[in-house]
């Protein structure tokens, strides 16, 4: 194992982790307020498709990002209406959102056959290419696309908002004790709407980062491959803390990057077993950490304002 291989691996780990981290920020907020948004897998798919479609037809990355966020907002209101206002079961709602999203993105993608062949311009690196010549850090950090940088900075900002601002305190209060929060004059429903919509927007943007930062295309049949569920597992493992969740996401990204690298390096292990690696890592991490994390008190429970 030379240094070069390790740097290459870590660089890929960060790149693969970036979409996961972006999605996890929103999910941490939503679960902190007590709502498990299980639809993020499907919303990621929508984000990935919207990013590619908007990037292809409008030829502008920034318009693509804005439109993706709007799509996330609309889907977020649908999820919030069902889980918060109608108090439907959050697991079922999420699974059905995923099912519809999988079908709908496949359908829309098959209607846009011209995007199939084209590769869309991906997110650029923000630092000048001369900086990539700096040893170690150059390749590891300065060659990264802007989405990776956003993913690296965002968790700290999210942690600040969650722990140091009034709104963050409100979110935590709503998740831990909605009745007390309501008594103190907060609108529990409003805050839950905000967090669920926020998580959906971040999920869509994460999907967009997946398709526009790395690969530059969309593939039918669920290209997110369970990443939404991996993010949910990361939240549980990290105890719903934005920065720690991001670290766990990087670990999952490292598992993903490792399996791709081992595939090219050795042929003794069948590649299908290597592909299982991120999922196995997720299950093992969950098993070890689940009892230690402090769950938001009303995690997954619907809130009824008339229920006294």
């Amino acid at each position: 194992m030379s240094l070069e291989i390790i740097i290459d691996w870590l660089q890929a780990a960060l790149r693969w982790a970036a979409p996961l981290i972006i999605v996890s920020i929103g999910e941490v907020y939503s679960e902190r307020s007590g709502v498990i948004n299980m639809g993020i897998e499907g919303i990621m798919l929508f984000g990935a498709l919207t990013g590619i479609a908007a990037g292809f037809y409008l030829n502008s990355l920034w318009l693509a990002v804005i439109i993706t966020a709007i799509i996330g907002l609309i889907l977020g209101f649908a999820v919030a209406y069902l889980t918060v206002s109608r108090r439907t079961n959050q697991v079922v709602t999420g699974l059905m959102i995923n099912m519809v999203s999988l079908g709908a993105t496949d359908m829309i993608f098959s209607m846009m056959s011209e995007t199939r062949k084209a590769r869309v311009a991906t997110f650029p690196a923000i630092f000048p290419s001369s900086m990539t010549n700096i040893p170690v850090l150059g390749k590891l950090l300065f060659a990264q696309p802007i989405s990776t940088w956003v993913a690296l900075i965002l968790p700290f900002f999210a942690a600040y908002v969650l722990y140091k601002t009034r709104w963050g305190l409100n979110v935590r209060a709503v998740g831990d004790n909605p009745k007390a929060a309501a008594t103190a004059g907060l609108s529990v429903i409003k805050i839950k709407y905000q967090t669920v919509v926020l998580s959906s927007i971040f999920a869509a943007l994460g999907g967009c980062a997946l398709s526009l930062a790395e690969v530059g295309y969309f593939s039918a049949g669920g290209m997110t491959a369970g990443r939404g569920f991996i993010v949910m597992a990361a939240c549980v493992v990290a105890g719903w803390d934005p920065v720690r969740t991001a670290l766990i996401c990087i670990a999952f990204g490292a598992a993903d990057a490792a399996q791709l690298r081992i595939q090219t390096l050795s042929s003794t292990i069948p590649y299908q077993f290597l592909q299982m690696l991120p999922y196995i890592v997720t299950i093992i991490a969950l098993t070890i950490m689940v009892k230690r994390s402090r769950v938001p008190k009303t995690w997954g429970a619907p809130y009824d304002p008339k229920d006294v």
């Binding site: 109608r86 079961n89 519809v100 098959s110």
Partner: peptide, 24 residues
Amino acid sequence: ASSMNSIIIGMCMLFVIGFGVIDN
């Protein structure tokens, strides 16, 4: 599109759980 199947099933279920909840 052949994926319309899963859209129909998913949509039906979203509306059923959305409107089927009685006074809980």
